[in-house]
Design a protein around this nucleic acid. Structure first.
Lengths: 152, 152
DNA sequence: TATTGTTATACTCTATAACTATA
DNA sequence: TATAGTTATAGAGTATAACAATA
């Protein structure tokens, strides 16, 4: 995947460069590392962060519709369709129609879906621990709260 | 159960959810925002963060070869080829061969490339300011240093 | 035999716009 | 007329493996 570094470590090269001062660059690389840790912990490349994030968010907010899911997850409505398709194909959610507005689709987590969440959540937590291994608990909390304040 | 939508903004939905506790999720959304701010500031959708990051890194490290660039930028070697292709097509870099090892390609920034950097760097800094608009200068420094410690 | 860069290819993710059904 | 979801399609970004030149 990524070629190994020989004499000049990546951070040393970046440190004395314009990109070493940019939040955007570091956010990109940090996200790459987070994604890698997630993939390694979960083991199944078809179970992506966004897919499992969608499943857990439906579980945490019973009755939420697809549009609101898309907003909360910062995903396109058409992307959300594909995500729910995948979850439905696995039998982890079923699509139901909102009684008060039959245009709205309300995904509901099945028993199988809840069981899957029970299995993957500890793995996800472990991948987060690996990601933040170099930080103290205080620093980790501080990073999360700063990132939260960056969002709209 | 949970009322849909209009009164509950995205962050309120996430706040009481599993994903609201995950660094990985917030890194993804923060990076989306950073990318959006960058695109808006630069105006040209063909000038991506990674392309201009590559150009600036060559400028900051004259004589660096493509492989080391790929490591520093956490990019695939084949991706690096395409990036240098694009920069060369714009006349912003030229490919030269390393005298001590003729397998290595050393991209050099041209005068036009340096002029382009002079134009885009202030725009990139402005997009970073917009991204971090909600943070104090201290908090912004703190975020950057925490992100740096997350990387390998 | 190993390494650097290159090429071709395939694959994922996302965005765009048009369509349906409901309101 | 507007909205929620869906579909089809195209585009960007990236990864994979095979190849040529050089060491």
């Amino acid at each position: 995947m990524i070629p190994p570094s020989t004499d000049s470590p990546a951070h040393a090269v970046r440190e004395r460069a314009f990109i070493g001062t940019l939040l955007g660059f570091h956010l990109r690389v940090a996200q790459l590392k987070a994604f890698g840790a997630f993939a390694k912990a979960i083991g199944d490349p078809t179970l992506t962060p966004l897919l499992l994030g969608t499943l857990s968010l439906i579980d945490d907010h019973p009755g939420i519709n697809q549009g609101d899911l898309a907003v909360a997850l910062v995903a396109d409505p058409s992307t959300m369709v594909r995500l729910i398709d995948q979850l439905e194909k696995r039998g982890w959610v079923v699509r139901e129609t909102a009684p008060h507005d039959r245009r709205q689709t309300v995904p509901r987590v099945t028993d199988d879906g809840r069981a899957a969440l029970g299995r993957v959540k500890p793995l996800i937590r472990a991948s987060e621990d690996e990601l933040a291994a170099g930080l103290s608990e205080q620093e980790r909390d501080s990073l999360l709260s700063l990132l939260r304040r960056l969002l709209p």
